[in-house]
Amino acid sequence: MSKGTATSESDSEANPQHWEKTRNLTFIVLGAWFVFAFVLPWFAKELNAWSFLGFELGYYFVVQGSLIAFVVMIWLQNWRQDQIDDEFGMSEE
């Protein structure tokens, strides 16, 4: 079965630097997530004073903008995380 990708044991040694970078990246992503999930929808009323693509801006974020931001956020995080893993020789493939 496919479970035997078994790279040698020494590969799976934890590396504090790798974890530090991973953790920092995660915190940055969670910060962006907080802005699009809570801050912008919270101020939807105020944001509605502006408009974007013919939408009131507060409305735009809640029905579309934040959703697009979430998708982009995940892809960016994974792109960066792959780089970090490669840097420390921790990519499995």
Partner: peptide, 10 residues
């Protein structure tokens, strides 16, 4: 620690 390391065995 092992859980946080992407490579290696499950």
């Amino acid at each position: 620690d092992d859980t946080r390391t992407p490579s290696g065995r499950t």
